[in-house]
């Protein structure tokens, strides 16, 4: 039964066989970090502070991730190792429900943490550790070398927890946030986005390179 269970997991792992999942995640995190930095270090009337500017930025980011992933899948992955269409239950309903649940829990946790005057950088570090645990469970158990990525995530989370004030100030907003609590949370979150975004991009890039190395391009018909 263990062999059957591991077979059932294979298609899910296949989505990231070319590193596309991680590249998309890394691009999104770095994109959010860049937006945060632009908002923190530009004047209040700059486009990055407007709702439409934010929505356009988000829209462009999503389009790049969606069509970039699709292009890699259609032109590289599917011709080399085959095509998979996942069930809506696995690509839409479950992730949406899980995302909603996690958002509710995290929002409540943030409000509680802010009111209890917790150290917000430690809270962000905990988020990083939780992500490292999920990554270890879902991905590193299937692809052994990804344990190094787990170690990097744990190290990054510890770095965030003990990050010096100067580093937080460099990625923060220079004191323009409404409260000191929110300012430290925003700065720590930005640092988390940069570190984890870079980790995902590097890991996804390595996966992509390994995938190209270990698979062959389909033979072209000679006319």
């Amino acid at each position: 039964m263990d062999r059957v269970a591991s077979l059932l997991n294979r298609p899910r792992v296949y989505y990231n066989i070319d590193g596309v999942g991680e590249l998309g995640m890394g691009f999104m995190l770095l994109g959010y970090a860049l937006l945060g930095l632009l908002q923190a270090h530009t004047s209040k009337d700059a486009i990055w502070h407007t709702t439409y500017g934010f929505l356009v930025y988000l829209g462009v980011m999503c389009l790049v991730i969606h069509y970039g992933s699709k292009a890699i899948k259609q032109h590289i992955t599917y011709p080399r190792t085959g095509f998979v269409a996942y069930r809506k239950r696995d690509t839409l309903w479950i992730p949406m429900s899980a995302g909603f649940g996690i958002s509710v829990v995290m929002s409540a946790g943030l409000v509680l943490a802010a009111r209890s005057k917790w150290n917000m950088t430690s809270l962000v570090a905990l988020i990083g550790l939780a992500m490292a645990a999920m990554y270890a469970y879902r991905i590193a158990t299937a692809v052994q070398w990804k344990w190094f990525v787990v170690l990097a995530m744990v190290a990054g989370s510890v770095l965030i927890a003990f990050s010096p004030a100067a580093l937080l100030a460099a990625v923060g907003d220079g004191g323009r946030e409404a409260t000191a609590t929110f300012a430290s949370f925003a700065a720590a979150l930005r640092l988390w986005e940069v570190l984890f975004g870079a980790m995902f991009m590097i890991s996804g890039g390595i996966s992509f390179w390994l995938y190209l190395r270990h698979t062959s391009a389909p033979a072209r018909d000679i006319k």
Binding site: L7, L8, G82
Partner: peptide, 22 residues
């Protein structure tokens, strides 16, 4: 056939190349 059915049960559809590869 057990391998094939187990793989297909986890997805909506796939192609011949994927099954051959897996």
């Amino acid at each position: 056939r057990l391998m094939i059915v187990a793989l297909l049960s986890a997805v909506e559809r796939t192609d011949f190349l994927y099954l051959q590869h897996e």
